[in-house]
Write a protein that binds this DNA or RNA. Structure first.
Lengths: 213, 213
DNA sequence: GCGAAGTCAAACAGTCCTGTTCGAGTTGTT
DNA sequence: AACAACTCGAACAGGACTGTTTGACTTCGC
């Protein structure tokens, strides 16, 4: 596939992907013109390598997610579940610092199914860990698994936003994330307050598919 | 100001605002045409009442936030800080169920400063409560206040997303939110894990104004 | 019932974006 | 050196949206 392509062409594809990543990181709605200018290339050249904007965005998303996967794949997931969670969180944080807004772009540009695919692997990783931690009794069981996974997602993204808004020290962010998630995941000591049902009924991953449209 | 306006005119303004709220709730980028159709009115009529799309979005945002404020303003904020937090969370959840996506629309349509203004009041309310709870020793002090406020924001919005994606039972959502936030806010029993710095240095609300553009 | 206020469809101008074509220039490869 | 691969600017067609105008129509208020 990449057999007979001139050297500068492949180099330019790389330049485009990098510029696109940078642009989409700032503004998910960055235009082809902007990306081309950022890459120091002509707009037409982009279309020479990517048939459409969607294709470029997908390539960027795949690239970022790929790097993410690579970094997270060979992570020690054994031993104490909490320690494993901490490692996973720190690694995720490091990666997501870069991926954040690119995903935002993909979110509103790609088809929902395609997007769900991209998010599936990281989510599954967290899910497996959550379930193990539960069996071992170190994570709480009174909240849905899907919710705990969502909390990780929300907290990490939220921290990224706070850092971007200059309301949180980038160096402290990783620890803040770890502390927060650990606090949520820890089994509740006892009911701290009356008026809260003992066990919230949950829907797990029902997927009863009311869907849109 | 609203003196001499025909009855159907004021009624239509109301219809427009309601339709716009509904539309923006589904899609933040809803067009004037879509909103007009949803309101059962002509597109031109919208421009008769709102000079521009931005003006309409701002009106909708103001309306939603206003209702939010009204509901939260006369809330019992005395007594145990945790109980007060629970009340605040439940009330916020009830309101935000409706406000969610409207704010998303406003977020990318309105000027950042204007948006910050709209978010300021609710955030300040949470912040005051957090600080009181800290003084009373029922909330943790090892994380920045601004972060705890952000956590509330993230968790509530995250729950709304999960509900929208049909991964969380709407009836259980309020409890889930309460449990999650309480877990984060509770003072850490002791360092549960080595490798975490004793106290994360924080930036509070520095606002060193790097700004965009 | 009369006039003013309000509504509306159609059509228009203006902007911005995507994606394509063309011809000329440039640069890698052999 | 020479050919092919590549790049590029300009220009075009097409679409979507915003915001305005016009002139006819409906409805409210008195």
């Amino acid at each position: 596939m990449t057999e007979s392509r001139r050297a500068d062409a492949t180099r330019n594809v790389e330049r485009i992907l990098e510029a696109a990543t940078a642009c989409l990181l700032v503004t998910p709605s960055a235009t082809m013109t902007e990306i081309a200018r950022a890459a120091g290339l002509g707009r037409v050249t982009l279309y020479g390598h990517f048939a459409s904007r969607a294709e470029l965005v997908e390539a960027v998303a795949g690239r970022v997610l790929g790097a993410n996967e690579a970094a997270l794949a060979d992570l020690d997931q054994t031993g104490d579940a909490r320690a494993a969670l901490v490692r996973l969180l720190r690694a995720t944080w490091r990666q997501l610092d870069a991926a954040r807004a690119v995903l935002a772009a993909a979110t509103q540009e790609l088809s929902p199914e395609r997007l769900w695919d991209l998010h599936k692997e990281p989510a599954a990783r967290v899910e497996r860990l959550v379930e193990r931690g539960r069996r071992e009794g170190v994570f709480r069981s009174d909240l849905p698994v899907s919710w705990l996974v969502a909390v990780v997602h929300q907290v990490v993204h939220g921290a990224a936003e706070e850092v971007a808004a200059d309301r949180l020290d980038p160096d402290a962010a990783a620890d803040v994330v770890v502390r927060t998630v650990l606090a949520v995941f820890a089994p509740p000591a006892e009911d701290p307050l009356p008026g809260i049902p003992e066990q919230a009924e949950m829907r797990g991953g029902a997927r009863s598919a009311p869907g849109r449209e």
